[in-house]
Design a protein around this nucleic acid. Structure first.
Lengths: 193, 193, 193, 193
DNA sequence: TATGAATGAGAATTCATTCAT
DNA sequence: CATGAATGAATTCTCATTCAT
């Protein structure tokens, strides 16, 4: 029963991701998403209260999976530096492997209303906090400078990675994103040590 | 004649900036901008072909003024490090002093269509190139590492600064943005040297 | 079996009356009535062909009970004047004692489609005929004028009583409805004699 | 200018009256009214804030004209009894001569939402007060009983007339409505004297 | 009998843009 | 140059009804 519901819920999310990636945010009518998902328009509203909720759920779901990946890898990571490397590697690799997702999160979803963007911001928060957590660990381990402003630095690191992904997309993905991990993290670590 | 035209052109841009800052992107109808500018709706279309053109012109105009400031200060700057400091200082200071502009460029204008965002991207390009130019100068001066990937690094730097400004806005401007310049540039320079 | 069916039939009618009184005609979806009745949405359609049929049955049932009361009292009533008094007394007293019913019949059910209102009209007809019957009896008894137009007068009497009930409801029931019986019937009788 | 606006305003009201009379309340979409009025859908919204406002304005306008007729005739009327006769005569005659209006006010507009009906009630109020005013005059003139409850009686009279009109419509207008004036007023006057 | 998930038709309203004055 | 009344395309969401289980 519940798994049946869960199943359709995810079918709709998958459809939304595909439709938005293909048609852009403003070209993605509910009817188009419903058709792609193979359900009636009204069925969408059995699973989501408003159209916006599809987008919020989409972001929550996808980013949640990313954060889960991060957390899993954190257990293994020895040093803070290694953890930071892992984060950047997963970030770039996952988005490179899932261009639809990258396109939707970096380009399309940012065109949404302020209200929606605030909801999306809540999904990003755990990720930013994860970065801060690594910074604090690094300071404890004495591998990072003790005078770091962790709140500022987590923004610098997140903003830098975010821009690299967006630029890569806008460029038409003419080069490898994951190939930027080494130099990106190198730049961060020099700033941190 | 032309100056009269120029005058009204700028009145409309000023009105647009104010209206967007007050009502948000989606609450800024052409009629509202016209009213704020003190002209009829139809008059707008004597100066701009489409609504989007108002926004593009707004961005071009404001960012153009910023870049002019950068260029002026570049002439004075001795080292590349000093130039980078200037850039970050102007970036943060100008947006801190002009909250309406900051709000419009960082928050509202990003909700626009892909087409508009591409046009806006063109305005940002000279700024990004300015950063790259400084990086190259630093390498020449041998104050920056010679193995820097200037294309990647300019993205890292721009993305990092951009995120700091946005976070400051979203936080409700509870702290000084210009006070972040020192630590931000310090982080960059460690990564560059 | 049949009594089981009858039972659930009436549960649904009771639920409909309550839901309409609480939520108004337009706020009374089939699903809400089903929930109040403790059955599934689809079950409603085992007892009623269309949603309208619930409302028609509701009206028939409630008005039928009123007419039964009238008929019972008619047997006892001596003169036509006494019978008319009884009718008005029962009309006002029953609706005063059952505000939900009054609200539903006087206010909410009148917002329905023409088709439904015609069906409801059929339920009202026996009541109007009852009034005409009394008028004719009065003429026979020579207590009412022999030149009365019974078809017109029955409308005048029904319309007058109906308006009194509706006004009482809309006023917020700030006075006693049954207290209006004496003066209302007095007005009628003067017109009839 | 203003007369131009007034002109179109009335064109839309006329169109609405016709469309509602022909298609019923629920079959009268804004687009249908716009088409009948010979304007674009959007134009409707330059003159009315919401669809409901068309209906409210329609009722206000038509009933306002009726009340104006009443008031004009009141000046001439000698006794209260004559005034009451005039009121009933105008009421019946006007609606008989304007079947569309009769149909819309007696049948279609009553199917509307509670909110709309309250707004319509405000238009009816002056009419009901006019009746009460006549009753009071009659008592002063000592042609009506001094023990009349004017609030109750105005309801009885209005309700009775209203029902006669509605019945006449529902019957398919198989008889003359204005021919009912004499006997209707006769019934009232007997009750009043 | 009973369920309740799924269906899909249907309509009000906004607002960028035009063009007659 | 300027006006602003008029246009009309375009899309979300509701809810009565069905039917597979």
């Amino acid at each position: 029963m519940t798994s049946r519901k869960q199943e359709k819920f995810e079918m709709i999310l998958d459809a939304a991701e595909k439709v938005i990636a293909e048609n852009g945010f403003h070209g993605s009518q509910v009817s188009k998403i419903a058709k792609e998902a193979g359900v009636a328009d009204g069925t969408i509203y059995l699973y989501f209260k408003k159209k916006e909720d599809i987008l919020i759920s989409l972001f929550e779901d996808r980013l949640g999976k990313l954060v889960a990946l991060f957390n899993a890898s954190m257990l293994e990571s020895g040093t803070a530096a290694e953890a930071l490397y892992k984060v950047c590697e997963i970030h770039f690799t996952q988005l490179e492997q899932n261009v639809n997702l990258a396109y939707v999160t970096q380009i399309e979803l940012r065109q949404s209303s302020l209200e929606l963007r605030k909801a999306i911001g809540l999904s990003v928060k755990p990720y930013i906090q994860l970065i801060e957590h690594i910074l604090k660990r690094g300071i404890e381990e004495q591998s990072f400078r003790s005078d770091l402003d962790t709140k500022l630095t987590r923004q610098l690191i997140f903003g830098a990675m975010d821009e690299v992904v967006t630029s890569w997309l806008i460029s038409g993905r003419k080069y490898s994103l994951s190939a930027q991990v080494d130099r990106t993290v190198d730049f961060f670590l020099r700033g941190l040590k």
